[in-house]
């Protein structure tokens, strides 16, 4: 394995550094220290090109959601920068957000609105004002939401149905990059499978997808690049092809343990 050190504890498996290419999503020495002194993200560097899926693996508090929050400019970095299509998110947040769609762990839409009304509102917020009801129906069917649910209020929807609406909203925005924060968490196996197939189709359309997840197996199944995060750092970063023959679960545990030893 070729290793390039972007920080001391990182093993980087042939992944380009942001300075070498103009990636759709790029984290460049991204660091976040909160006001209480907690270092949530420590010089994280990675990039995601168009038509690629980057899976951030890691336990709770590893820094995955902080990374996503920095891309969405919900918080500002202490050091470094997050870029979307070359636009630095904390400098030009509105321009950057035009290029990105987001699906959260637990998609919560407006419960008094129907699925179609929710899609209409968020599509307009995303700058897409030309869609018709038929377009919304088509996307909902594409993400697997049955037609009889389209005009029902969200308050009666299961988590899987809401996730489908969430990904439909992301599709409607037609942004070149998609952020997913634990998107398959809590989904049943069938819904999880369908969700992953949908992500594959989006990748095939050329979207750059950054996904945080606890799910090693789904990450291995779908990701082009996997980054293992621990305590705010990327402790391993590798192309899927480089770890094809390896047991990702063992690798994950090895890097987590190795990093812990190094830290200790």
């Amino acid at each position: 394995m070729e290793t390039t050190s972007t920080n001391e504890a990182v093993t980087n498996h042939a992944v380009n550094s942001p300075s070498q290419s103009r990636a759709m999503l790029a984290a460049d020495n991204l660091t976040k220290r909160y006001e209480d002194g907690v270092l949530a993200l420590d010089h994280v560097t990675f990039e995601v090109n168009q038509g690629h899926i980057y899976a951030m693996l890691g336990g709770n508090g590893a820094g995955k959601t902080t990374t996503i929050n920095l891309f969405l400019n919900f918080i500002e970095p202490t050091e470094g920068e997050a870029r979307i299509n070359g636009i630095v998110t904390h400098k030009e947040p509105l321009r950057a957000k035009e290029k990105i769609a987001f699906v959260s762990e637990n998609v919560m839409l407006y419960p008094n609105f129907t699925a179609l009304q929710n899609l209409d509102f968020f599509a307009r917020l995303g700058g897409q004002t030309g869609y018709s009801k038929d377009d919304y129906r088509e996307v909902l069917l594409r993400v697997g939401l049955q037609e009889e649910a389209h005009n029902k209020r969200l308050k009666g929807f299961s988590k899987g149905m809401r996730q489908k609406c969430g990904i439909a909203i992301a599709i409607l925005k037609d942004a070149p990059a998609i952020l997913l924060d634990e998107p398959t968490s809590g989904l049943d196996p069938k819904a999880g499978f369908e969700f992953i197939r949908l992500l594959e189709s989006l990748r095939d359309e050329g979207k750059a997808i950054l996904m945080s997840t606890h799910d090693i197996f789904r990450a291995r199944d779908i990701a082009d690049t996997i980054g293992i995060m621990n305590q705010g750092r990327i402790v391993m970063q590798s192309q899927k092809s480089d770890i094809a023959g390896e047991d990702l679960e063992k690798l994950y545990m090895k890097y987590m343990a190795g990093y812990m030893e190094q830290v200790n």
């Binding site: 969405l72 987001f102 917020l125």
Partner: peptide, 14 residues
């Protein structure tokens, strides 16, 4: 609390 604020501001909303 509902989570709609995050989704809203994932868009270019001033």
């Amino acid at each position: 609390e509902r989570g709609t604020l995050r989704l809203t501001f994932a868009n270019a909303v001033p």
